[in-house]
Each structure stands twice: as structure tokens, then as C-alpha cells.
Design a protein around this nucleic acid. Structure first.
Length: 837
RNA sequence: GCCCGGGUGGUGGAAUGGCAGACACGGCGGAUUCAAAAUCCGCUGACCUCACGGUCGUGCGGGUUCGACUCCCGCCCCGGGCACCA
């Protein structure tokens, strides 16, 4: 080739009489991606002799080509897979797709195309994106939620739960659009409570629905958080979600204002965490949906109560729990009273929207003196307020929730004699109150959880059908296991209202009862897609099993997942459900009995924002990685994603470029290309210095990889490369750099390694540093006077406390700031001495 | 409303109670080039100073400490989640 005629070569410096090709990410990356697939680099068998390690990214909803959030997530996953492989593990790195869900169904309504067709197209697009970012998977283990072989076992598990009492049917309210005659997802209800399609006001409607009894596992789900190595904030969120509280439950007779029993003889049971304050109960409240609400309402109050109940039912739970706005329209008097067993006095019984039927007993005792919301309500409705805990001296607030001696409990000795809490602190008074309730058979200690059972029925088409048949004689009958999977039909028409076509498909609907053979109809509800994602990580261990969801031994080998990675938005629901499934399946002996937790180590990455807004398809602000892959390539993009900030933080893609990492890859290429003279060989002391720096790099990066500090590792690589450009290179330095960088930038390092040494860099063992090479001759010691830096001294790293102090006090720059004997000298050799004058 | 995060140069960020601003982007300057791109090298928190050097500075107000971006208390602002409660 003639100089000047070829664009793909360039000259560098006077030593470059050799030609150095320009790095071409397109060619190199495509070639390696193909090789990893052809050579099965990241395929692993269940009898692999290496120690097992299971790395999993939350499987994605197939929304089409990857966006930046995917790139971020799958870059983290891939670099761990490659890193652990180099460390000698047999790494399970599977991939799948969460392929049921509402978007495909909405697309079907718009385009008339079957959701399967639409979904499978998106899967192809996303798979191709994942390949282009260089992620290495065992594609033989691909799992998709909608495939018949997976759906079959999702249904199998449902039946197993049903058989063992973990699934049941109950009435529950749904969002009902009267215009569309359809159930809406929360997402489809606009902020003003109207349907996004028709604009009609959404109503609450009760339907028979299937539930999983996750509350049976509430205590275990709480306790076993101690077994996992998860981010503290996720553990906190899970604990708060489970919401264990200890208190008391007791019942009170419904009476009139004079204390005469109600004609129905009804009693209302309340749950409270503060039984110690019961003498201060000045009213009580039922949830508007409470079963007794209308029974206890007097004729006089009935019209107001009925209007109130209707209004509360159409108000969102979040608005109901809000304490903002006027309170005086948020409750209504029933006309009845409850007899407070502590005071033997009747207290008025209200309904209020802020009391939920789903928590506790759906009824509360209200104690304005010790609860601010009760206080506000009492003021709004002109109800009495009695303090039963003495607030501290100088207290000028309203309700007092802190500790203190009980007062007014009872208010005077004459009113009540069998219980006296006065003077006790809160804990003591609680215990005594519960003991008293127990003694008199009025109530008992009670542990409550905020966690509710999992409503899994969805009135949708694109999900796993619930495998149940309704027979006029036998009721709900499970579909026999040998008839699974129950699959939705293909010849369906999607209605513009969003109503599931299953409800009108005669061929699907009409069947026979498995028990009696008589005419029966199928359940038309499908399962929440969270059901699919609650066991896919188990299926990956044994993805082609046709007899069982998975073989126990295969799960025993791979599970728990050693490193699970996903978005923080799944910190509660998905993780809670998957934990519940794992425990239940283990208890039912489907999974190994010892498998109590599915995900040993969890990492939750932050979100990608653009201009401060969450990046999402619905907001239309996605930045597609395709253009970057076409120009700068996957390695530059991956390093850019890692370099932008800590993995756990949200990142704003605005203003974040990949210029820096792209240039860095060019510098690496020119440094490491065999025979390149761009960076001269280091000699003598320089070579030793560079090799020492290399050992420091190994130590630093190895540590940072364990701590998820990838952004600083990229900085370390840049710093090291800058040093080598100045001091000259050694083979050890360059080869080590390639190995350390191989997990993060797999393509360019694989190419350079092969050119330099032959073979695969990703099959090299992870480098180990030599501790002896970390030693340094001197360190910079800071000398402060009263915390202000006055001098910096070069000292020996093993300088003693006294020597350091003496050296500091002798400093020319320090002396002017210290007159006389210093009051104190803090010596922290070899880094710092602080002199307090 | 409740729960969980977060506020550091022009920008993304670094600093596990001990040198605030590593590393990069952007900007400025130099080398190279006929010229440009690319590349290589240097400077770049603000203010005062010819300089040496000094003062200030991590959302705001307190506190703990010899020493606080870091720990504690109270605010303000921003982001996210919600089946949200006795």
C-alpha cells in the first residue's frame, strides 16, 4: 500500500515505520460475537466440573430493540459472567423473555395482529440487540413465558398450589370501566379517575378472583431477609411492605347513645397497636366497605351513609390515605355507637375513607390524643379528645405519640376499678391492657401484617390461562395435569374496548367437566405476569424438562442465583413474589427443601433518565443505542455506561457521551497492537515502576469488581494507560491490562490478545497481584494546623507516630502557625499529622 | 399522604471520619499538518495576589469530633415507588 492512499492506516511518531491499522469496531465486534456463539463460549452443562456460579439479569419484557436501560443492565451482567469465568467458575448465564403482558394485547387491538406474532418479532429484535452489545449467554437455555412448554408448567404450579391450599377464590374489587365493559389495569386509569380509552369514570366492581396465599409466608418472608446479601434499601423496602406490627384485637358491642344493645346483637372487632391508649378512645371507625357498615346505620343516617360509601369506593386508595385536604367530608356518622369496654361508655361509630377494609379488621378505635389523624378527624367532627399519655414538659403539639406515663386510664377511680394503667410507660401499659383483655375474654394479643394475599386473576387474553373448569355440578374443577397446557386459541378477534376475546370464544369456552364429563365452561381469566417471572430462574436450571417444571437435582446444583441484577423498580413486588414461590415450591417438594431464598446476592441498578425524566417507551424519550453501536461500537458504549457513574445511581443520559471511552479504546489499541511503536518499551527503573503500577492496578480493579465500583475501575484503566504512555510499556503491563479489561470491553481485548498471544483472553485466569510489588518507598504526609493544611512531607511508609509528629513540628511552613507548645498533636502516620495550637 | 433514594466545579462524577474535585466531557493553549480532522503534550473550582502565597468552597441551619462531602438532629429542594394502614 502506498502512503496516503489508504484511509485505514495511519502513522504515529517517528518510530512508527510500521503500519498500524485503525481500530475498526464493526468488523472486530461482529467477528467475536459470532465466535462466542459458534464456539459455545458461554454454554455450560449441568455436569460441568467447575464450581457453579449463577449470574442472572431480570429477564426483559420484549419491547423491541434494546434501549439504554437494557444496555446498562446486560453490560453489568455480562461483565460478571466473564469475570467469574476467568476466576475459574462454571458460570450459568441464561437469558429469556417475559413475553406475556398488556402492551402486546394493546398492539393487537390496534393492528389486529395476534399478540404472539407481535411478541415473537420483538423477541428477535431484542435478541439481536443483546448480541450486538456483546453479551454472552447459553442460548440453548432460552425460556419465554408464552411458549407452550413454559405455560404448561406455570399452570402445573398453579394446580399444585391449588391442591395444597395456597390458591383460593374470593370476591375482590377491580377497576371497572362502564363504557368499555372492561376491567382496567391501574395504569389505564388516569389521574382523575377516568378510563384512558373511553374517558368514563372508573368504578369499583366486585368479581370472584383467584388469590395466592402469600400471607401464609409473611413471617418467613420477613425473617429470611437475614439470609440474603441484598442492598440495605431493598431489604428495608421489603420489610416495610410486609409491615409486621404487634398489638391487640378486641371486640365491642354495637349500642345506641344510651348504651342499649343494637337489635342485631352485632359486635365490631378492632385491631390496634396501641391498646394502652384505649381509655382515650372517643369514637370508632369502620371502613366504608366493612360488612357491618349498613347494618349498624340508623334509618336517619342511611342516605348520607350510602352516598358516602359510593363516593369512597370510587376514590383511589392513595387519595384515601392522604391526610391532605378537608377532613370534614371524609367521614360520616352511622348513628350507632360502640361500647368501649375500658370505660364502659358508648362512643360514636363513624365511617371514614382512610380506614381500609383490607388491613386488620377493617375497623379501628380512634384515640385523638395519641394519633394525629384521629386528632384532625376529631376536630373536624367536634369529637372529644382525651390524652392518655402525659406529654413531656413544654409540649405544645397536638397528638402525642411518644413515650410517657399513662394518665386518665381510668380517668377517675370511681369510673372503673379492675384496670389501672396510670403511671405505666407505653410498653408496660400495652402488656397490661392486653393481659386484661385476655383475662376478660374481650380480646387478645395479635400480630398483623400489612402484606395482603396476591390477587393473580387478570381479565386479559395475553397471559397463561388459569387451568380451571366450571361445572354446574362440581364447581371449580382443576384441569388434569395431562391436559396441560391450556392454551388460548389463535382465531380470535380483539375488541376495541380491550375486553378479553376469551370470554366470547365458544371453542375455548365450552368444554367438559374432568370429573363428570358433563358440559362445563373454562375459566377465562389469565394469570398476572408476575406469576411467570416468579419461577423462570428455576426453569433455567433445567429448561427442556417435559415431565416437571425442573429437576430437583439441577436446581440443587445451580440455585440460589449467586448474583441477580435488575432495576430498582422491581425491589418489592417481583422479588417478594419470587421469594414466595421459591419457599412454597420447596415446601411442596418440587424444589429442594433447603432452598429458602432464590437470590443470594442482589444488585439493583438505578434508572436511566433523560432531562430528569425516567426514560421509557411511554414517554417517548428513549435514546437508541443502535447509532452508537454503528459508529463507536459496543465496547465504547459498555465502557461509557460503566464510566458514567455508580451502577446503583440513576443516570441522566443527557450530556453523557462516549467520547472519552471511545478515545480510550483507540489509545489502548495503539498501545497494545503487536509491533506498534506508538508507546516505546520502558527500560530499567521505568519498567519496574510500570510493573509495580500494574500490580497496584490488579489489586485495585479486583477489589472494585467485588464492590460494584466499575466507574472507578474504568478511571483506573485510563489512569494506568496514561502512565504507560508517559513511562513506556512492558508486555506484563499491556497483557495484564487486556485481561483486567476483558470483562468490560470484551471485543477489543479479545482481538488484541489474539494478535499478541494467540488464544482467548476470556479463557485466561484472572490476574493476581504480588503483595511485595505493592510496597512504595515514600508517601506524602499531610501536616495540618487546626485542621488546615500547612505542609506536605515525603516520608517513609513505616514512619512511627513520634517521628511523624516531630517531623511535622519541625516544618518551616508549620512553625509560623504554632506559637509555643501545641495543646495536642494527633499523629496518624504515615498519612497525616494534625497540630492543635 | 406513606416508603425509598439523591443534592459536590460549566457537565458526568471521585474521595469507605484524615490532601475536596481522581478520571472523563467541555473549554483554553502548544506540538504535528500546506490546512483541517485524527493524534500527542500542557492548563482549567471561585476570589485576592506581579509572584510566593492566602481566603472561601460539597443544598440550608445546628451538633458531635483534633478533624465532617462522609456521623447525628432539624429544614429546603429534586427524583422514584405505592396493595401504603390503625
Amino acid at each position: 500500500m502506498e502512503p496516503g492512499t489508504a484511509d485505514d492506516t495511519t502513522r504515529h511518531g517517528d518510530s512508527a515505520d510500521r503500519r498500524l491499522p485503525v481500530y475498526d469496531p464493526q468488523a472486530v465486534e461482529a467477528r467475536w460475537q459470532q465466535r462466542w456463539i459458534d464456539e459455545g463460549t458461554y454454554e455450560v452443562d449441568n455436569d460441568d466440573p467447575r464450581p457453579p456460579y449463577y449470574v442472572l439479569c431480570m429477564y426483559p419484557y420484549p419491547s423491541g430493540a434494546a434501549h439504554m436501560g437494557h444496555v446498562r443492565n446486560y453490560t453489568f451482567g455480562d461483565l460478571i459472567v466473564r469475570h467469574r469465568t476467568m476466576q475459574g467458575y462454571g458460570v450459568l448465564s441464561p437469558i429469556g423473555f417475559d413475553s406475556f403482558g398488556l402492551p402486546a394485547e394493546n398492539a393487537a387491538i390496534e393492528t389486529g395482529r395476534h399478540p404472539r406474532e407481535f411478541t415473537e418479532e420483538k423477541i428477535v429484535e431484542l435478541s439481536s440487540s443483546l448480541r450486538r452489545i456483546g453479551a454472552g449467554y447459553d442460548w440453548r437455555r432460552l425460556v419465554t413465558s408464552h411458549s407452550p412448554s413454559y405455560t404448561r408448567f406455570t399452570q402445573w404450579i398453579f394446580l399444585k398450589f391449588l391442591e395444597n391450599g395456597l390458591a383460593y377464590k374470593q370476591m375482590a374489587a377491580v377497576n371497572w370501566c362502564p363504557g368499555c365493559q372492561t376491567v382496567l389495569a391501574n395504569e389505564q386509569v388516569l389521574a382523575d379517575g377516568t378510563c384512558e380509552r373511553s374517558g368514563d369514570l372508573v368504578e369499583a366492581k366486585d368479581l370472584e378472583q383467584w388469590f395466592f396465599r402469600i400471607t401464609d409466608y409473611a413471617q418467613q418472608l420477613l425473617d429470611d431477609l437475614d439470609l440474603v446479601d441484598w442492598p440495605e434499601r431493598v431489604v428495608t423496602m421489603q420489610k416495610n411492605w410486609i409491615g409486621r406490627s404487634e398489638g391487640a384485637e378486641f371486640s365491642m358491642a354495637v349500642v345506641d347513645a344510651d348504651g342499649n344493645a343494637h337489635s342485631s346483637g352485632a359486635e365490631v372487632s378492632v385491631y390496634t397497636t396501641r391498646p394502652d391508649t384505649a381509655f382515650g378512645m372517643t369514637y370508632a371507625v369502620l371502613a366504608p366497605e366493612h360488612g357491618l357498615a349498613l347494618t349498624v346505620t340508623t334509618d336517619e343516617n342511611r342516605p348520607a351513609v350510602e352516598a358516602f360509601v359510593a363516593r369512597a369506593r370510587s376514590t383511589s386508595e392513595m387519595d384515601r390515605l392522604s391526610s391532605e385536604g378537608a377532613l370534614d367530608t371524609r367521614g360520616v356518622f352511622t348513628g350507632s355507637h360502640l361500647l368501649n369496654p375500658f370505660t364502659q361508655q358508648p362512643v360514636p361509630l363513624y365511617l371514614a375513607d382512610y380506614v381500609l377494609v383490607t388491613y386488620g379488621t377493617g375497623a379501628i378505635m380512634a384515640v385523638p390524643g395519641q394519633d394525629q389523624r384521629d386528632w384532625d378527624f376529631a376536630e373536624a367532627y367536634d369529637l372529644p379528645i382525651v390524652r392518655t399519655v402525659q406529654p413531656p414538659e413544654g409540649w405544645d403539639g397536638e397528638a402525642y405519640t411518644g413515650d410517657g406515663p399513662a394518665i386518665n386510664s381510668p380517668a377517675s377511680e370511681s369510673t372503673f376499678e379492675s384496670l389501672d394503667l396510670n403511671g405505666m410507660d407505653v410498653d408496660e401499659a400495652k402488656a397490661r391492657a392486653i393481659e386484661w383483655l385476655d383475662t376478660w375474654g374481650l380480646g387478645e394479643a395479635k400480630v398483623n401484617f400489612r402484606l395482603r394475599d396476591w390477587l393473580l386473576s387478570r381479565q386479559r387474553f395475553w397471559g397463561s390461562p388459569i387451568p380451571v373448569v366450571y361445572c354446574p355440578d362440581h364447581g371449580a374443577v382443576p384441569v388434569p395435569v395431562d391436559q396441560l397446557p391450556v392454551l388460548a386459541p389463535d382465531d380470535v378477534e380483539f375488541l376495541p374496548t380491550g375486553e378479553s376475546p376469551l370470554k366470547h370464544h365458544e371453542g375455548f369456552l365450552n368444554t367438559t367437566c374432568p370429573r363428570c364429563g358433563g358440559a362445563a365452561v373454562r375459566e377465562t381469566d389469565t394469570m398476572d405476569t408476575f406469576v411467570d417471572s416468579s419461577w423462570y430462574f428455576l426453569r433455567f436450571a433445567d429448561p427442556t424438562n417435559e415431565d416437571l417444571p425442573f429437576d430437583r437435582a439441577a436446581v440443587e446444583h445451580w440455585l440460589p442465583v449467586d448474583q441477580y441484577i435488575g432495576g430498582v423498580e422491581h425491589a418489592i413486588l417481583h422479588l417478594m413474589y419470587a421469594r414466595f414461590f421459591t419457599k412454597a415450591l420447596a415446601d411442596l417438594e418440587v424444589a429442594p427443601a433447603t432452598l429458602r431464598e432464590p437470590f443470594q446476592r442482589l444488585f439493583t441498578q438505578g434508572m436511566i433518565r433523560l432531562d430528569g425524566v425516567k426514560m421509557s417507551k411511554s414517554k417517548g424519550n428513549l435514546v437508541a443505542p443502535e447509532a452508537i453501536l454503528d459508529r463507536e461500537g459496543a465496547d465504547a458504549l459498555r465502557l461509557g455506561q460503566l464510566f458514567v457513574g455508580p451502577p446503583a445511581d440513576d443516570v441522566d443520559w443527557e450530556g453523557v457521551g462516549i467520547e472519552g471511552t471511545y478515545r480510550f479504546i483507540g489509545r489502548l489499541w495503539r498501545l497494545a497492537y503487536p509491533g506498534s511503536g506508538v508507546v516505546p518499551d520502558a527500560s530499567g527503573d521505568d519498567a519496574l515502576e510500570v510493573d509495580k503500577a500494574t500490580h497496584r492496578l490488579i489489586a485495585r480493579v479486583s477489589d472494585e469488581m467485588e464492590r460494584w465500583s466499575y466507574n472507578t475501575s474504568v478511571a483506573a484503566f485510563m489512569e494506568f494507560t496514561n502512565l504507560v504512555y508517559k513511562q513506556g510499556k512492558t508486555d506484563f503491563a499491556v497483557d495484564t491490562l487486556l485481561k483486567l479489561l476483558a470483562p468490560m470491553a470484551p471485543h477489543v481485548t479479545a482481538e488484541l490478545w489474539e494478535l499478541r498471544n494467540g488464544g482467548h483472553v476470556h479463557e485466561e485466569p484472572w490476574p493476581e497481584h504480588d503483595p511485595a510489588m505493592l510496597a512504595v518507598d515514600s508517601v506524602t504526609m499531610v501536616v495540618q494546623v487546626a485542621g488546615k493544611i500547612r505542609d506536605r512531607l515525603e516520608v517513609s511508609p513505616d514512619i512511627s507516630e513520634d517521628e511523624a509528629a516531630a517531623l511535622a513540628l519541625a516544618s518551616e511552613k508549620v512553625r509560623p502557625h504554632v506559637d509555643g507548645e501545641p495543646r495536642k498533636v494527633i499523629s496518624r502516620p504515615p498519612n497525616l499529622v494534625n497540630i492543635v495550637p
